[in-house]
Design a protein around this nucleic acid. Structure first.
Length: 586
RNA sequence: GCGCUUGUAGCUCAGCUGGAUAGAGCAUCGGCCUUCUAAGCCGAGGGUCGCAGGUUCGAAUCCUGCCAAGCGUACCA
């Protein structure tokens, strides 16, 4: 309908250009908006105000001319000039009612479109280091990434989800060493656990299981392990040097093979845990991409080679630098350290090169907002590799600040003091957790009060939407129980009977759903969909309280039942996109 | 210090490429269940859109300055 209005205006503009009232170079994109106030009709256009200056006419005067040039259309009942020069369109209600038949005919496809035209698009999200279980901080990115993926699929993109596993690098060595130290405790050794090691209980569990299976093959006495290692911070030393010393010692004492074994033990256990948590959270991936692959197959060397060849690398102070500042970054970045090790950034360059080579038209990275400073250097790398960095969209997700009542919950993976994603799911349920996370614009700070969300009598809006769905299911059950007849075709044929304010606005809202899905997808803003669903539920609940659906008059009854069936379909379509269930009974 | 982001009702937040009287939920107060689920509905109060300028027919939205908060500013990941 919106498109029809735009088309009408376009024709009017063409006519006026012919009459030399307007000139074609003045014409902006014609924007038609839904009105907020029903008094202003269904659609409004600000064209007259935009063109008033160039046309040297007052906005209202120009609006009059435009309206005069509008072709007739059966769907448009009335066109008015209002306010400073808005052109308001009143749509014929019967034309609006067609949406009910459309929804019921399209079913689960209602709201889908093909604006993405099968373009390949990749969405990488969560990608948390496999050094511990996922906590509530990861939940928001997980839901956001998965909902964005579903939305993009709904508008026709060919979407691939990916999790980038940082299974190379120092953090993983710290984990492996932490597991080994806990294992040594199982062997009966006692010592001060490093302040910079991973202290979570899950590390002890992994070590215990490993110990039970392997027994004492990896045992060493504590004095030997700690001999020659720089002292830890509490003893006046440096915690980084201490843990690095322990890593070196672990590698030396265990040898390559045994170290790799304990390293794998930690990685696989935690990764399995992460996969399980995400799956239980309704998040599934097409690909799990391992950083170690980039190391093994020479991708990092390739990527650096390409940068070097193009003249973007130089040597300074024993390290190799990428001249990213020439490409928009704040300063140049090290890619190969003085000690010969490549940096995390070098891996990321290779990873993005790999993504580009896979032929995605668009690449989306969902990152924690604390990584925002990292974006320019990745774009610089893409540009340096000869790619169009505009292909990359980095979507930032602010971490939710967790509260228990008024008290802020401090979290740190290292100290093992955090609320896990699994705990959250157990407490508030999958539906509430997902809905809650995606309710707010993702790049905004968000307060997550556990006490509120975990209380059984909570006012979580997810129930409000689900309740609307369940209520409709209940009405449809009543229809059968009461043995009332139901003729769907008769319902559609008599949609003109749906003339109360509640019915008209409900029908109008249904018609907006496809636009909301498209906007949510293309702008990566799922919260619009959430707000829409709340509005739709609200309109329905109001309607429910105002009118009886199962009335004597069979024609009116069929018409009303068709309408609420359409609402039911629309609600569940939206909830499916959010990964939230549609309960038939509540 | 510099950079990015954010300041909207008591609280948590919406506000579409600048548009008509700035909205919702919660909280507070007052109504509605012999009728399809009251996890609901109706109504009321509550605002200097951080502050000050500017751009224009028109600014919460765009520009500048100031104030405040968060994050970033590693040869960590």
């Amino acid at each position: 309908m919106k498109q029809k209005v735009v088309a009408l205006l376009q024709k009017a503009v063409e006519v006026l250009i012919e009459q030399s009232v307007l000139q074609s170079e003045w014409i902006p994109d014609i924007s038609v908006e839904r009105t907020r106030d029903a008094q202003h009709g269904d659609f409004a256009c600000n064209l007259a105000m935009m063109l008033a200056k160039s046309a040297k006419k007052s906005p209202r005067q120009l609006a009059e001319v435009i309206i005069a040039a509008l072709p007739e259309d059966a769907n448009v009942e009335k066109v008015e000039i209002a306010g400073p020069g808005f052109i308001n369109f009143f749509v014929n209600p019967n034309a609006q009612h067609e949406i009910i038949a459309d929804v019921l005919r399209l079913g689960s496809s209602f709201g889908k479109s093909d604006v993405g035209a099968g373009q390949k698009i990749q969405v990488e999200f969560v990608s948390a280091n496999p050094t511990g279980p996922l906590h509530v901080g990861h939940g928001r990115g997980a839901v956001y990434g998965s909902v964005i993926s579903e939305l993009l699929r709904a508008v026709g993109y060919d979407v691939a989800n990916e999790y980038y596993v940082n299974d190379a690098g120092r953090q993983m060595d710290i984990l492996a060493t932490s597991v080994w130290l806990r294992y040594l405790e199982c062997c009966g050794q006692t010592f001060q656990f490093p302040s910079n090691g991973y202290k979570g209980a899950y590390v002890k569990d992994i070590a215990r299981q490993f110990f039970d299976r392997i027994n004492r093959d990896f045992c060493f006495v504590a004095t030997e392990v700690f001999d020659g290692v720089p002292v830890d911070e509490p003893q006046g030393g440096d915690k980084e040097q201490h843990i690095d010393g322990l890593i070196t010692k672990a590698q030396a004492l265990l040898g390559r093979e045994r170290y790799a074994q304990i390293f794998q033990e930690g990685l696989t256990a935690i990764l399995a845990d992460i996969r399980e948590d995400l799956s239980a959270f309704g998040v599934d991936y097409q690909h799990w991409f391992f950083e170690s692959l980039l190391v093994e197959d020479g991708s990092i060397e390739d990527a650096l080679g390409r940068l070097d060849k193009a003249g973007h690398l130089y040597q300074k102070e024993g390290a190799t630098w990428f001249a990213s500042s020439a490409l928009g970054d704040e300063k140049d970045r090290v890619v190969v350290r003085e000690n010969g090790q490549t940096t995390y950034f070098a891996s990321d360059i290779a990873y993005h090169m790999n993504k580009l080579d896979r032929g995605f038209e668009r690449i989306i990275n969902v990152w924690g907002a604390d990584h925002h400073g990292y974006i320019p250097r990745v774009r610089a790398a893409m540009t340096a590799l000869g790619a169009d960095s505009a292909k990359l969209d980095v979507l930032l997700v602010q971490f939710a600040v967790l509260y228990r009542g008024d008290e802020k919950v401090q979290m740190s993976t290292r100290s093992g003091d955090f609320v896990t994603l699994r705990h959250l799911c157990d407490e508030v349920g999958l539906d509430a957790a997902r809905f809650f996370y995606v309710m707010r614009k993702s790049d905004q700070h968000m307060d997550f009060d556990l006490k509120l969300a975990t209380s059984k009598t909570n006012d979580n809006p997810v129930f409000y939407v689900q309740y609307a769905y369940a209520r409709i299911c209940s009405v449809l059950r009543q229809l059968e129980e009461k043995g009332l007849s139901r003729n769907s075709q008769q319902g559609l044929d008599n949609s003109a009977l749906l003339s109360t304010d509640h019915e008209v606005s409900l029908v109008g809202l249904l018609a907006q759903y496809p636009e909301v899905v498209e906007r949510s997808a293309l702008k990566y803003e799922p919260h619009h969909l959430v707000h829409f669903l709340r509005d739709l539920a609200n309109y329905f609940h109001t309607y429910y309280n105002a009118e009886q659906f199962l009335v004597e008059d069979a024609k009116l009854r069929d018409a009303r039942v068709s309408l609420i069936e359409a609402v039911q379909q629309c609600l569940t379509n939206g909830l499916v996109l959010l990964g939230v269930s549609s309960p038939e009974i509540m």
